[in-house]
Write a protein that binds this DNA or RNA. Sequence first.
DNA 1: TTGAATTTCAAACGTTTGTTTGATACGAAC
DNA 2: GTTCGTATCAAACAAACGTTTGAAATTCAA
Lengths: 223, 223
Amino acid sequence: MVKSKNHPNNRTRERILDKAEALFACKGYHAVSIREITKSAECNVSAVNYYFGNKQNLYCEVFQHRWLPRAKRIHNCFRQLLADKPNCKPNDIVRALAQAFLQGPLTDAERVRHHQLISGEIAQPSQAFNLIAKQALHPLFNSIRGDLNAAMSEIFGDDQLTLSIFSIFAMILHFNFARHLITSLSGHQYDTDFKNRLVDHIVEFSMFGLIGKNGEDWNASTT
Amino acid sequence: MVKSKNHPNNRTRERILDKAEALFACKGYHAVSIREITKSAECNVSAVNYYFGNKQNLYCEVFQHRWLPRAKRIHNCFRQLLADKPNCKPNDIVRALAQAFLQGPLTDAERVRHHQLISGEIAQPSQAFNLIAKQALHPLFNSIRGDLNAAMSEIFGDDQLTLSIFSIFAMILHFNFARHLITSLSGHQYDTDFKNRLVDHIVEFSMFGLIGKNGEDWNASTT
DNA sequence: TTGAATTTCAAACGTTTGTTTGATACGAAC
DNA sequence: GTTCGTATCAAACAAACGTTTGAAATTCAA
């Protein structure tokens, strides 16, 4: 009956989106109940169905109205960092990317939420995956692809460039969403110092690998 | 009452473990019901509580009796590949690792299950995380750390080595559990050719980064 | 063949789930 | 002050959930 209504910017609606996002991020879709969300948002159980129709749709609208805007803020931060460097080299691009994702405009709590949500969709894609793939992942991927392609003086195969971008993203995502494992194995907390260290590492490893900046030119052993 | 019983190797028990693992892997813990598992295993609902006490414990025993043995097979494959190469260099180590995880002893279906399960635990650690951290992740990490340390002629800081290993693992895990995203962005299916390509890429990128094997020695632009 | 232990089963347990209902409260327009 | 569209609420809904029960099968040693 109220199906076509939009309920734009209603207070309760916004509170539900906030709390739902936090809960979905840290426990996963099926582990969170509507009652848990509405109790956290201090409203009635039926508010979810009133404003969003059903639970599944609430989950999608969390991605639409919370996750995507944040992804755009990160993307803009990345572009801004690049704009400050005309004639940028590949290492500038990787650094801007790592900074945008690890130290960018988000608070650390937002960053954790952001990457928990996307890691869930990457591991087990749902309806929301198509949304963020089309609106965030594909555009960002193509954007970086173009930048890197222009910045690389060497001739780079299409596939080689694609796989390299995947690898850089693998690191950035992994250092964000595998925090527990990384803390457990390395002993480092995710403080400012460590995140600086991570950005430097991602740039150097992406550029020079294990060989390192001043690396010797050893020959590979017999294959 | 039957609490201390072990029910070793019972047929029904094994079938439940098999089906539970497959379902937990592809839908996640909370999205799978006991009835779904027992229907798939063609036994009575109460069999889960009879053999495993409760759902949570079944989940843990899946990791104990299915996931861990597979992790050990991968680890053994890795060690075997290294044993065939005396005086191995870092690129041999990375190649052995990538091969063990992407082409190793598992069937492809097993590999997908394996990485879906661990990606769930990495993103949102549960009881099972401590088990696999202690019995698989820490040992493998330390093992690789020792190998790489011995193979690197250059002096490598402790942290630098640690972060490099994380990065290599980030790639290997990412290329395994983000299959949907990677297929969506690159157009590649996970056939034999593509997996060969991935192993080669992981080795080259881990060794030389974007610069590549025959890379020029450009200078970084001004920081 | 007997009898005790183990395994399977249908049925039910009390909760919790997502969703719906119908009544009440609110807020602006007339 | 009345009216009307919107928002909130307690209460209830059927369905599904994890778990328990107690009685039938089944197994197997004596």
